[in-house]
Amino acid sequence: MYDFEFVKPSTIAEATKALAGDGAQALSGGQTLLPTMKQRLAAPGTLVSLNGIAEMKGVCKGDGGLHIGAATPHAVVAKEAAAHYPALAALANGIGDPAVRNRGTLGGSVANNDPAACYPSAVLASGATVVTNKRKIAADDYFQGMFTTALEEGEFITEIAFPIPQKAAYVKFNQPASRFALTGVFVAKYADGVRVAVTGASNDGVFRWKEAEAALSKDFSAAALSGLTVDSSDFIHDLHGTPAYRGNLVKVLTARAVAAA
């Protein structure tokens, strides 16, 4: 990879200043960014590590539900969120492998918005609030397509607040080589309705399956999904699965998630 200048601020304010420079890029756990840089698909002039910022780490309950610092590794979320939001903890515990979970972070995953990443589905299905160094962004406004988010230049996630559902589950169909989701579905039931978010299926990245939300809000059972169809016309087509295959998976996994919730 090309060389760069490495800086490691210890506060959000210092990181904001460092990221205002030309060619500066934020680094979190680096489990995606480093491979990308090795392939020279990214070549930042300055890399600003967010791993030394204590105020961006940890899991705690607050007004917005479960607040998780963006620099919290998956392994810590898996442990510390378990008592408060078990489905979210289980999702974190299924990302990558143990060594990746010790390094990769919530904020890094959500900032990258890989179309097959697990976390974006939890953020969207929970109607979470993405807190950045500049503002708060509702999940529905945050995800804007494959690898595309509402984050602007110099903006980085500091925390995500997850409203805690009455019931929830995430079920993913593993892509065993990459350990990403071939397709994954997060179902969350709140007092005011059910939200269903799908990852790994659409070329537009994570999305809400609104027909299923309406059906499950009336009747929270796998049977409520039986008459629904999934429009897979814009789904991902690769050697692991056709759009129709992924479309079928969405329905099957949603039913499994409802049963598991």
Binding site: L34, N51, D97, N102
Partner: peptide, 28 residues
């Protein structure tokens, strides 16, 4: 060298991590 194989796993502050996917300066 792509964090798939795990041959490079070491412990950093007691946690297993893939040393090919961490910058040395980040764990000074």
């Amino acid at each position: 060298d792509t964090s798939q194989c795990g041959a490079c796993v070491v412990h950093v502050n007691g946690k297993a991590v893939k040393s090919c996917t961490i910058f040395a300066q980040d764990v000074a």
